[in-house]
Each structure stands twice: as structure tokens, then as C-alpha cells.
Amino acid sequence: MGLLTNLRDSISRAASTLFSEEDPKRIGIYGPPNAGKTTLANRIARDWTGDAVGPESHVPHETRRARRKENVEIERDGKKVTIDIVDTPGVTTKVDYTEFLEHDMEKDDAVRRSREATEGVAEAMHWLREDVDGVIYVLDSATDPFTQVNTMLIGIIESQDLPVLILANKIDLEESSVQRIRNAYPQHETIPLSALEGDNMDEVYDKIAEYFG
């Protein structure tokens, strides 16, 4: 079973690299809850397709199902890079409905949101295992990046030999510290941005084309 799956994975990956010009790479946007993943996904989608990917919210776990935006064409230096963007639910090791109660949510809604968020984490981990060709890892640069979740996820991504781009989001916030992220994950290039404000998006697209083109 595992062997078969692995075999099939490697075949599909080999096939995807063979036909890379035809099949857009599927880039998963990963990160902890409330890092700005959906804001970034919407920014990219709006910039290049005119559509949004999904609703954004300051309430954590707004995205509880992976959402995909296909055939996003990004033009860099006269070259077109086509990717599928997968906006994934925020990955965490604990989901507690009481956290949502602080956001004026009824208990029933909070419990349901919590359950869906947990399903979403499971789904995100599953996508990471089988269905992404590269990862954009979004971190809130105003918070401590050195967490168990971040270390584990980046470790998994590295073990999969997936290309990963670390984005230090929310540089518009005063508490933002891009250097803290660079220090935490020196083995990867860290690109600062504000997905909300659209700051430094040009460099982000350059790097996307470079990493996933």
C-alpha cells in the first residue's frame, strides 16, 4: 500500500516534471493560523486573474478548507509562469473553540468552527504529503517564528525536497521583525512583504517565478 502509493507519487511527480510546461505547478500556501495566507492568496489571484480565492478574516481559522485557484499566470521579465495556488487552513497543534468565543461567536458556532478547523489542518497536512509541488510558507513577522509548528512543517517540506519560499508577512505592523524570521530559518531565503498593503509584491512575484517557474 505504502509502496504503491510512493511509486504512484514518484511516477506522478516524474510525469509532472516531464510535462511541467503544460501542467501548472501546484503551490501550497502554508503557515500558522492568522499569518495572512488567504490575504496573500487573494492578493496574488486578484493581481493576476481578477478573482479572489476566499474570504479573509482577523478571526483565526477562517480558512477551513483548502481552496485552489488554478492557472494563475504570472508574468516576469516577459516570461509566463503558470501555477495553481492552494490556500490551506492554518496549521496548528491545538484548536480550542474558546478562542473563538472572544470574537463574539456563539458557542455552537465556535465549536463547529473548531471542528472544521481541525479537519482543515488534517486536510492541509494531507495536501502537503501528496499534492503540492512547492510551498510558500507565510509567517507573521510580528510574532515569534520559532514555534514547534513552523519548525515541524518546514522540516517536513525540506524532507520532501519541495522548493520553499518563506514570506515574512505583515511588515506594515510596528512589531514586525523580518530578521527574527531570517535568524530562525537561515537555510531559506526570507522575503518581506505586506500582503494586506501590497508592499514588496514585485519581489514576491520575482521569487515565485524563480522558485516555481
Partner: peptide, 23 residues
């Protein structure tokens, strides 16, 4: 109900995909 702890490595290692949590 509504409070969960997740083992990310286990979730990642699983071949099965968890579709829906029941109450």
C-alpha cells in the same frame, strides 16, 4: 467537543485523508 490536539507528524504520515470529524 470543540477542543482538539493535533499531531502533525501523524497527520502527515497517514495515507488516509480525514474528511470529517464527528461530534
Amino acid at each position: 467537543p470543540g477542543q482538539y490536539e493535533l499531531n502533525l507528524m501523524e497527520l502527515y504520515d497517514r495515507e488516509e485523508y480525514i474528511v470529517a470529524l464527528q461530534e
